[in-house]
């Protein structure tokens, strides 16, 4: 009988008839795939736990992140699992609340970058000509620098603050999406089904939305996953440099920045927030690797930070 395999094992059905037999049995192969890739599974679990903790921070966190106990710089203990900072605030609670900013900035910036970048890539690849030229010249300009440096330049222009940091990171990351998308469009444009669609009179917009875009989903998803981890690192770095959120808001980068003054007396302030960043980024990277294997996307740009 038909083996319920396809992208999971890479075994291809022998003929069309068999393919039809297999097709209805394809049930959530990604879940099974994930189950086999333990690193990705761990990554996903960690991320889900973090996201839940971030959303329900007010229930999960043992203290209010800005509550000041009269225990300044106290080391990790039963009462304060990760210790307290110079103002007596509970470090664990601040890290949990910090996850809100870090995770949401990562997701929001990459979503923005994805929408705009994909649109730019679509236009450039599909229409070609001067539109392509104009868009690609700009993309090339950004390509000459790492995303983080572009983000710093943009913050220099827009000014500091969380909103500006979000816009800066989003703009800094859009070139990766535009490049991936344009490459996909250029190859898909020549496919027979696109020609067929054109022959039966489907409009340009129709072709773009119904044929080109769905076929480009996999590499875009992979790119988005990788980008989120670098966007989180970028936000943490900008916050650390003092270019991001206002001092009272807890974010991982800012907690580390504040910690600098006290690390000679309070190592925990310098260790745990960074650990939170690293675990998050590592988890996303594990997940990204698994997605890349699953979708069989060749590596466009392994490192863009």
């Amino acid at each position: 009988m038909a083996r319920a395999v396809d992208i999971v094992t890479g075994v291809e059905p022998k003929d069309a008839a068999e393919a039809m037999l297999i097709a209805p049995r394809r049930r959530r192969p990604w879940l099974r795939y994930l189950w086999r890739d333990k690193k990705a599974l761990i990554g996903l679990i960690v991320l889900v736990v973090m996201a839940v903790a971030a959303v329900f921070a007010s229930y999960v966190a043992p203290y209010d992140p800005n509550d000041q106990a009269f225990e300044f710089l106290s080391p990790p203990s039963g009462a304060h699992l990760l210790g307290t900072d110079d103002l007596g605030r509970d470090l664990l609670s601040r890290i949990i609340y910090g996850a809100r900013v870090s995770l949401s900035v990562g997701v929001i910036t990459v979503s923005l970058a994805m929408v705009v970048g994909v649109l730019m890539g679509l236009l450039a690849g599909f229409y070609g000509g001067w539109i392509d030229n104009l868009i690609m010249r700009y993309i090339d300009l950004q390509w000459a620098f790492p995303n983080f440096i572009i983000a710093v330049y943009l913050v220099a222009v827009f000014g500091t603050g969380l909103a500006n940091v979000i816009v800066a990171i989003a703009l800094a990351f859009l070139d990766d999406f535009a490049r991936v998308m344009r490459g996909m469009v250029l190859s898909i444009r020549e496919e027979e089904y696109v020609m067929a669609a054109r022959a039966v009179g489907v409009s340009n917009v129709g072709i773009l939305l119904r044929h080109v875009l769905p076929n480009a989903t996999a590499p875009i998803i992979v790119q988005a996953t990788v980008s989120v981890s670098y966007a989180i690192l970028a936000e943490a770095s900008l916050s650390f440099l003092g270019l991001g959120v206002k001092p009272s808001t807890p974010t991982w980068g800012l907690i580390l920045s504040d910690a600098r003054t006290f690390i000679s007396r309070a190592w925990w302030l310098g260790v745990f927030p960074g650990l939170a960043i690293m675990i998050t980024v590592l988890s996303i990277n594990f997940l990204g690797d698994a997605l890349r294997d699953m979708f069989d996307v060749r590596e466009y740009q392994e490192v863009q930070r």
């Binding site: 690192l233 600098r260 260790v271």
Partner: peptide, 18 residues
């Protein structure tokens, strides 16, 4: 190598100082 790619460089600096 995996950890090195996932940790922010400024945190690496702080750890080294500690």
């Amino acid at each position: 190598a995996f950890l090195g790619l996932s940790m922010p460089d400024f945190w690496m600096g702080i750890l080294l100082i500690i």
